[in-house]
Design a protein around this nucleic acid. Structure first.
Lengths: 334, 334
DNA sequence: TCTTCCAGTTACATCGTTGCAGAAATATCC
DNA sequence: GGATATTTCTGCAACGATGTAACTGGAAGA
């Protein structure tokens, strides 16, 4: 049915292997021969069979991307960007949603998903460093996010603590003194939540304020969770004059709920988020947030992973890269 | 390195093919033999090599999903859902972003992307029916969206016209008489834009109103475009008391801009969108919109495509399925 | 007892490509 | 000019699975 290399070889009057050599840019081919082959390829409309090539070469030219949920705006924007960057280097991206369960994360790390890819961009949420080390099957792996910072693994991340400190300081600089923080995870110190909480607390300390546990609300990083977290806060009667959502969706959920309850933003309560998803710019009021350098993260993580795959990466194992960040001061917290 | 079927065969003391038969549920195998093989598989931790299986069988158990931009919320939510549905039937989804260019759409339809998948879920935006028919390479194809409604192709879509009419009627029912519509595409009659515009006009007619071309603003379906469209409208001095964004992102961009300009929503201008992305519920005010039955679309499109792939689909070619819709009346247009 | 049949298993070819080793043709050297 | 490099090209095996056909051994039938 489909045209094979054999058909091309016959049409060009050369051997199968010569066709292969032409396609793989083998050095020693006479220009005339090369042209004959290329002509035959064009004439027959030949396209290489990727499956066969993969079987023989052991490479698929696909990167795996493991994240919890593609419908979350941050991940959707990141995935879109990663695909574009990968595409520019001749790779495709195969996405796997883990729903943030240990089981799915493990399956993505070792199972058949792994086979389909030459390397993995992995956002661990439930797995610890030792789980990953145990499951990791020899193929290159670059971690995204921050739950695991372990010298054994390459990691591309953002300046969570510094950025959280900067944005909290911004809130404080306008005179706010009771900054609620939404999206804390209990006991987390190494994950995004823990690192951002640390920055929040550093900013408090720098401003001479005590950390008040009543102001820290535990919730998932989703709009609905942000909304209920802020409702809970209002119901509890705890006073606050600003909200720091540990990511934008939480902050936007909180913004919505505050406005529903008739609380004026930013007059009565200022709000800041983290991620700078496209939606933040167009919220009403627009959301003050941190742009965590997504372009840089995409560029460097894909670059590093592909370099590892192709064996052209840096000598050092366990590279830790941090993208720069920028504050985006908007109307929700001027 | 990896354990192969041959290793399993040796360990179980049977032939290679017997192992294959066990894995493929071949009928005539003695239970004792089957058990021996299963034990050996478990002992060695064997996993089938998907690449080899694909080469031999010609199937990849992957579905291709072609859409313009994964970072658009509607597509992100749809993709996430499609992946879950496909996964439940043992398929993976490989996403390709076309950036809505003819070139990329064609490449996804015929090129190497096609090889990697057993069938395609395709959102044509630039290609016409004849382009698709010409490029289509024998493998199953299910169209998503509505740019192409052609009896030659399977199509899963939504009730664009009815839903647009219903939501426009809802705007009119509250006494609004000047409903601006954002996101029109010039000359489109078969695409989402054209169909929704038709519903808009039907609603006007039903209410005894004339269509005013000044109220229809051409723009891309993005937040920033929605914002500039509404600014353009304000600048032009055209009077309007409601806005229908042909999708939610446009409506949300418009909502933002109106509020920036000090226009009260919904008091002075009511706003409605289309798609019911998660963000709509949490906008401030929450966005009145149409829920186009995304679950049903995902379920039925993946179901149909897989049935076609496995040869268990309906006899009829060119099936056209329409999901039901629901209005979501919220605060932006009560 | 001999054939026939069928369950259960096996050997071999095959999918379309690339790696390896070597053959053939041409260039280089003393 | 003959041996030695170098360039150019080729054949075969292999990647790891599945399809086809054939083989084996025992039960059923004549």
């Amino acid at each position: 049915m489909a045209v094979t290399m054999n058909d091309v070889a016959r049409a060009a009057g050369v051997s199968l292997k010569t066709v292969s050599n032409v396609l793989n840019d083998y050095e020693f081919i006479r220009p005339a021969t090369k042209q004959k082959v290329l002509d035959a390829i064009a004439a027959l409309g030949y396209e290489a069979n990727l499956t066969a090539r993969s079987l023989r070469s052991g490479k698929t030219r696909m990167l795996g991307l493991v994240l919890s949920d593609l419908s979350a705006p941050y991940y959707a924007e990141l995935a879109s960007l990663l695909m574009k960057v990968a595409s520019a280097r001749g790779y495709r991206v195969l996405v796997e949603q883990s729903a943030a369960t240990k089981e799915n994360e493990l399956a993505a790390l070792q199972g058949q998903f792994r086979q389909l890819t030459d390397g993995l961009l992995f956002t661990p949420l439930e797995l610890g460093p030792d789980d990953v080390a145990a499951a990791q099957g020899g193929k290159p792996l670059v971690l995204l996010g921050e739950h695991i910072a372990d010298p054994r693994f390459d990691l591309v991340t953002m300046k969570n603590t510094e950025a959280a400190q900067a944005i909290t300081s911004h809130l404080l600089s306008s005179g706010r003194r009771r900054v609620a923080v939404l999206g804390a995870a209990p006991g987390d110190t190494t994950g995004s939540s823990g690192l951002r909480m640390l920055g929040y607390r550093q900013a408090l300390t720098a401003a001479g304020l005590e950390f008040d546990p009543d102001l820290a609300v535990l919730c998932q990083w989703r709009r609905d969770a942000g909304a209920s977290a802020v409702r809970q806060l209002l119901d509890s009667g705890v006073q606050f004059d600003a909200v720091f959502g540990l990511n934008d969706t939480v902050a936007l959920g909180a913004l919505h709920e505050l406005q529903m309850q008739g609380v004026k933003v930013p007059e009565e309560v200022a709000i800041a988020g983290f991620d700078d998803i496209d939606e933040a710019r167009f919220a009403s009021p627009s959301l003050t947030t941190v742009a965590p350098g997504m372009d840089e993260i995409a560029e460097r993580s894909v670059g590093l992973l592909i370099d590892r795959i192709e064996g052209t990466g840096p000598e050092a194992e366990g590279l830790q890269l941090e993208a720069g960040f920028e504050l985006r001061i908007r109307d929700s917290a001027p």
